[in-house]
Amino acid sequence: MYKNFATKLLFFALLLLSTLCSLKAQTAFRIVSKPIIFDAERRQLTLDYLEKRHGLKQSEPTIHPLMVVLHWTDIMSLEKTFDVFNRSTLPGARKEIASASALNVSSQYVIDRDGTVYQLLPDTVMARHVIGLNYCAIGVENIGSDQYPLTEAQLLANEQLIRYLKLKYPIEYVIGHYEYNLFRETDLWKESDSSYRTEKTDPGRDFMKRIREKIKDLNIKGVPDHK
């Protein structure tokens, strides 16, 4: 009798510990507001980008999110990344994309190496982060690079953020930045210049494989099926 009681007690203790760990993981997810400048200049440049690059003439610089695009920054500092995104216009060093627009690059979210999630723009305000898809894509930048792969804390934070966004919006796709070209032959693709493209590797194939394993229960698509 005592042996059975001890076994049951151990079972319930392990169940309680598992539940507490799960609750801790869930409650640890926080979004810290860290807004970049969105002044009249950036607003107008965003409206111009939507019209000239995506063929969408709008009165407000908003998007209807259908996709989450994961990136890495290639800048190993949250504050330096923020400084790069904070100005409304592209710095002179970005000549390879300046011909398309003077609008500065940015994203809606940045995730630091420790997994802290910072929100730079509202989910439904357009950020310039992925050719052909900005009008429907929420961008998530991660502090890291090819030399400094993304961390376990970032993996968890990306998973939690995707789950959060899936609850709010009809998210159909989660892709890595390096996969954006695979949408060129789909109805989602909107880019006025067919030759405008850049080669990307972020956020790494291994990271995308792992994040897709983590969110497979959400039944979100990866790259499109080409028939």
Rank of each mutant, 00 (worst) to 15 (best):
K95V: 13
E96N: 13
E96K: 15
I97C: 01
S99N: 14
S99F: 13
A100S: 13
S101M: 00
S101W: 03
S101R: 07
S101L: 04
A102R: 13
L103Q: 08
L103C: 05
N104D: 09
N104W: 01
N104V: 08
V105R: 10
S106F: 06
S106E: 00
S107A: 14
Y109V: 04
V110S: 02
V110I: 12
D112I: 03
D114R: 06
G115V: 06
V117W: 03
V117S: 04
Y118G: 03
Y118M: 02
Y118R: 05
P122G: 04
V125A: 12
M126Y: 04
R128P: 07
H129D: 11
H129F: 09
V130N: 01
V130F: 07
I131P: 05
I131K: 12
G132F: 09
G132E: 11
Y135S: 09
Y135H: 15
C136G: 10
C136V: 15
C136N: 13
C136L: 15
A137I: 03
G139H: 08
V140G: 07
E141F: 15
N142A: 09
N142H: 10
N142Y: 06
G144P: 02
G144W: 00
S145V: 03
S145L: 02
S145A: 04
Q147T: 15
Y148A: 15
P149S: 05
P149Q: 01
L150R: 00
E152C: 10
A153F: 07
A153T: 09
Q154R: 02
Q154P: 04
L156Y: 15
A157E: 00
A157R: 02
Q160M: 14
Q160N: 15
L161V: 02
L161T: 06
Y164E: 10
Y164F: 15
L165R: 00
L165S: 06
K166P: 06
K166Y: 12
L167S: 13
L167A: 12
L167Q: 14
K168W: 03
K168A: 03
